[in-house]
Nucleic acid binder design. Structure first.
Length: 115
DNA sequence: CGGCTGACGTAAC
DNA sequence: TGTTACGCCAGCC
């Protein structure tokens, strides 16, 4: 009964939920963390599904350059930006400012891929 | 059952 | 330095 399959999504949710307030992470980092460095697209896919599941701070996940690539998938036009700004994150033109400062790396803050 | 798509990232040209 | 192509995996048509 090892059923180690739905981990991908589950791990994504877990990591995203662990992102502290006022911090952001990237699809690639999450993908890398769960063991699929080249499956970053799946991370976004998982987040898309997470929307209908429960409280996943998907707005805290952006692409590697700190661009709100997924903002188009949020309600309205600036919901994602507003959520981030409400956490103290500054954004200009869908680009997170001081991205390096608020970037939260699961590799550095979470145990190495524990299931 | 096969092919396309998708909230990315990296490598190659 | 900018553009193009590919990989990855799951869901959908």
């Amino acid at each position: 009964m090892i059923k180690v399959k739905n981990n991908f999504f589950k791990n994504v949710y877990k990591v995203v939920k662990d992102v502290p307030f006022g911090r952001v992470t990237t699809y690639g980092s999450i993908a890398k963390y769960i063991g699929s460095p080249q499956s970053s697209r799946m991370v976004g896919w998982a987040l898309n599904a997470s929307h209908k599941i429960q409280d996943i701070p998907a707005h805290r996940v952006v692409n590697k350059i700190g661009l709100l690539s997924g903002k188009h998938h949020f309600e309205g036009t600036n919901l994602m930006q507003q959520l981030l700004e409400s956490e103290g994150i500054k954004i200009n033109k869908n680009q997170i400012l001081n991205f390096s400062s608020i970037f939260w790396d699961p590799y550095f803050n979470l145990p190495p891929f524990k299931n």
